[in-house]
Design a protein around this nucleic acid. Structure first.
Lengths: 373, 373
DNA sequence: TTATTATATTGCGCGCTGCAATATAATCGT
DNA sequence: ACGATTATATTGCAGCGCGCAATATAATAA
């Protein structure tokens, strides 16, 4: 069962197409890729040999003339990806298939916030799930790890975090890889969530979009031609920087601080209830935050001109819902904005942040930029 | 002399490397491309066969042990590109080689502003230069055409312009191609200038940068991984949209209007003299414009996080010089901006806007995104 | 039962590439 | 002075991904 087929250019393109469009016939793949039918046949058959793809009759083509096309789909437990997300309060882990269905999930409360403790629990959780699903490490394309933090300027995609006191800048190869038996990738919470939306969520149809991630802070990500654009120092799309700390900023932390001043002592984002959102101080904050985020949307539309802007995050879901729908329903994003505006979307996978981490491993394998040949 | 070698993947990569790095030996190419030496030898020899490349001894390696490496460079008149730029006042045309040296240039004053008149003069000028240089159309990879305007949402890269009254939206294939015997490409002034900087000017070393184009209006462009990023509706990096028409905006037109209010009647940007720049009203305008453009630089740094931001345009050169150097010398781009800022550069080719148009044809041929195979 | 149609497979050859052996042209060492 | 050494380039050969064209397959239509 040699998987070097996965290194082949057109094999990857086939995987990408089936992943984004759902089941397809060989003929459809031929047309979409502009390659000879024989090429598709050979590659598909090799992928069926290693049990990555399977075929089934097309129910819609029952009773039609000609050779009945067979549709191709992924074998759900043939190749899977692992995802780990954590914040100061909890660890989320999962194993997901190529279609983005979690095959298993786990949530673990955090008791000790040391790097060692969190990562051992996470890797143990992944191992348990692999065992429970009767998989082994040859089935895993990789594991994505994501948590709140900022990428540093050093090479190697290091991540530093304020949320976990005394943590070092975490380096993928030196610090993370020892915990896992398969390739590990690391990215911050916002950018992982963005990949989740791109591969599995509301952004599947888009080539270019921007993500606005509302959590304790304000994060973000920009997708250009189905790739994460990270920019110099990996600082691209870090929208939080557009809101100086000296002024009101539409972050979860600022919302908690605002509530605290008026006597509602909350420490965690997930303690916010619908009742809190109805308080006058909250209403006012929401108005102001919506206004700021609409300005941000305008700036994004004028700079990146994405097809869509997506709102998501670990902030209270109703709160994000309201902000997104209010911005989506405004007549004009801003003065002189005459061209058709980007779609303003609500993220659909931000309740499962580990799915974004899982998406990272798939992205690293399938992103067009990774296979030049 | 069959030029289908130019369609080959690694042949194009070789051209790109020699274009960006200058003369290289076969061994250097081997290492930079991570291919076998035999691959480079064969491709290079084919390109020498069609007289695209030529070799010469490496002067620096005189007196060193071993087989002396021969360096490869372009034959200057083997493959060339044509460029046409015009604004309401003049037409600039040129023929340039792959290294960005103009082989010939022409400037034509505009007497009649009809589409037909301008394009016939431009194409006639190009044809004359081709003849004078003893070239024929097989040597021309293409012709870029650029002028002030905004791209429309229609497919086919249509360009609409306010500067030329009664002009239709110009479509490349239907409207432009009939004037030329080789492929034509069209793009607006700002984005063409940006390509000129990327291929020939101050931005050669950068993978990602943003261009701020100061002319009658405020244009711009974003380069991501050595590609123009155009965004949805080709509206990306149109910075002008960030300055509402209801307020002060750092555009050449606004500068002319400001001077007019204080009694200095100027209609054309190239009528601005150093004396004008010393007037009190001008000084105040420049202060304000610098402040606005520094804010823009901060926004760009926070969104695109480019390696560099380049200032250029058809606005008075001293004026752009001053704005660029003032922004480049500020301690911090803005509040909380802690990471290393982008380089703030001065464009070096904006005195030859036709070179940017010429760059477009080369870019269309050599851009990595155009050759997947 | 045969013709027609839509889809998939097989046989063959081309062309790009890597590998390993060989060639080339300079200096170094004695 | 002349072979040894070194750095660079070329050649022969084989592998392999792909396209083309012929063929096979499995359904409906006549």
């Amino acid at each position: 069962m040699s998987k070097d087929i996965l290194q082949k250019f057109n094999a990857r393109r086939i995987i990408v197409l089936i992943r984004t469009h759902g089941p397809l016939s060989r003929l459809q793949l031929t047309q979409m890729l502009s390659v000879a039918p024989s090429t598709v046949t050979r590659l598909v058959n090799q992928m069926m040999d290693i049990n990555l793809l399977t075929e089934f009759p097309n129910p819609e083509k029952q009773g039609q003339k000609g050779f009945p096309a067979k549709l191709l789909r992924f074998v759900s437990d043939s190749l899977v990806t692992a995802g780990v997300f954590f914040d100061p309060d909890r660890i989320f882990t999962c194993i997901a298939d190529f279609d983005g269905n979690p095959l298993s999930e786990e949530e673990i409360p955090i008791t000790e916030r040391s790097f060692e403790a969190i990562l051992s629990q996470a890797s143990q959780s992944i191992d348990n799930q692999i065992e429970a699903l009767k998989l082994n490490s040859t089935h895993i394309v990789g594991c994505g790890v994501s948590y709140p933090g900022q990428h540093t300027e050093e090479p190697g995609r290091n991540l530093k975090t304020k949320q976990f006191s005394n943590w070092p800048n975490v380096d993928v190869l030196n610090d993370l890889q020892p915990f896992f038996d398969f390739p590990v990738y690391q990215i911050n919470d916002a950018k992982a969530a963005c990949l989740g939306e791109m591969l599995y969520g509301a952004c599947k149809p888009y080539q270019n979009f921007c993500y606005i991630w509302l959590s304790y802070g304000i994060g973000g990500a920009a997708v250009i031609d189905q790739n994460l654009y990270l920019g110099n120092n990996l600082a691209a799309a870090e929208w939080g920087g557009l809101f100086p700390k000296s002024k009101m900023r539409p972050s979860g932390q600022h919302f908690l601080d605002t509530l605290r001043v008026s006597g509602h002592e909350l420490k965690r984002l997930d303690s916010i209830t619908d009742w809190h959102l109805e308080q006058p101080e909250a209403r006012q904050w929401i108005d102001e935050a919506t206004q700021k985020l609409q300005w941000l949307s305008l700036v994004i539309a004028r700079t990146f001109a994405p097809e869509a802007i997506v709102f998501g995050g670990t902030l209270n879901a109703s709160l994000i819902d309201e902000i997104q729908s209010r911005i989506a329903s405004t007549e004009h994003l801003g003065e002189d904005f005459l061209i058709s505006p980007p779609d303003i979307l609500r993220a659909t996978t931000d309740n499962k942040p580990q799915l974004g981490a899982a998406a990272l491993a798939i992205h690293e394998m399938l992103s067009p930029s990774k296979f030049t040949q």
